[in-house]
Write a protein that binds this DNA or RNA. Structure first.
Lengths: 206, 206
DNA sequence: TAACATAGATAGTGAAGGTATCCAATGGGT
DNA sequence: ACCCATTGGATACCTTCACTATCTATGTTA
């Protein structure tokens, strides 16, 4: 298909598609002439993926590019792709500039018995959150997070279960990415509703 | 204290503080003369809160204002503040324009037995996420979310436990907000690490 | 009273994420 | 075989956001 059909089928304007091509979010089409290129279903799929990551999750264009690069370069190894993709998705860019003290978090990870990369940005995210909460007078430490971590373990089991039975490695890697990144707003939405429910329960019980 | 001391103690530049005052993120100081105003610890606390919400969580200035307004206007009722504050934090602004079909999600909430506001934006967030995942070929439905919801229930219990024993209602409301909003990146970081661990475990087991 | 700080107003900045316009080269419909 | 809308590629422009800088009149302090 040509660019106008790609635009029509995805709902993304032609100029925006051109912008994504420039930014490397979308691989160039197969050139058929000097001013003609051919796009296929891969492009359409990729375009929808880009819109999901930027729109639903609010990833920046540059982060999206890093994530997609990890996805296409290491398609074979789902475990590796997950690590790379998630590493690229920084929750906050501040951490890179001022790497916080992660000793406390490292101890937590050790106590949990988790096999997690030493350089995982998630460690910095945790340390930063703890520091912020404490500066605002909320008494939290790594131990506070322990029961949350146990629930996260069970969430991860559910996540990984969704990936079984996918033969195509590209498909598996892509689904891993989607479930990890796109499910985040949904899980937070569930938490908020559960909080509302729990708050109402306790309120009524008094 | 005057603005320069507020700046020094918070690490936020004087010009930025003036900007926050203009934007209504910070209440004006007590005027002592035509070109002089006095700020107190409330302002310092509020300023740190603003930096935490915008910096750690990445909330926009306007969203932050809505959240803080809910916090100060309904200080007495923690349950209400939580609802309002969380309602103001839209995960994605798209939902407001194109309200998605929430029937499926509503059924899930009913099955869970949760007492949740009919108009809660979290419902739309869930519906939108499901729609996105399906458009990308991931076979999910509301039932898929059920086990996640059960884990969210237990997370919410932990959250509400952190709020017990706070006499001052403003403090309780503020802490509720902090734990809900600031803990989000931390919980997602835990989930990612847990996924990495679980992925490694299954990889090794083969 | 001289030097410096402050409040308030207005204008400017830089990054991000597009959008619009131009151009030469097609290429499907007649 | 012709013609004009479409295309790819390049460049310039636009809008929003979150600050940042500058200016002026007024205070404060040593």
């Amino acid at each position: 298909m040509r660019i106008s059909e790609l635009s029509r089928r995805s709902g993304v304007s032609v100029t925006t598609i051109k912008y994504y091509l420039r930014e490397g979010l979308l691989p160039p089409g197969r050139q058929t002439a000097a001013t003609q290129a051919e796009y296929d279903d891969q492009h359409l799929r990729r375009l929808r993926l880009v819109r999901a990551l930027t729109g639903v999750r609010g990833l920046s264009v540059s982060t999206t590019r890093e994530v997609l690069d990890a996805l296409t370069e290491h398609t074979g190894d789902t475990h590796l792709v997950l690590g790379l993709a998630l590493g690229a998705v920084r929750l906050s860019d501040e951490a890179a500039a001022h790497p916080p003290e992660t000793a406390e978090v490292d101890a937590l990870v050790k106590e949990l018995g988790w096999a997690v990369n030493e350089a995982a940005p998630a460690r910095a995210t945790l340390a930063e959150t703890l520091a912020s909460l404490r500066s605002l007078g909320v008494p939290v430490d790594a131990r506070t997070l322990l029961p949350y971590a146990r629930l996260a373990e069970r969430t991860a089991v559910l996540d990984l279960d969704q990936l079984t039975g996918l033969a195509d490695p590209l498909e598996a890697a892509e689904r891993a990415l989607l479930l990890t990144v796109l499910l985040e707003p949904a899980l937070m939405a569930l938490r908020r509703m559960a909080q509302e429910n729990e708050s109402a329960r306790r309120h009524a019980a008094e």
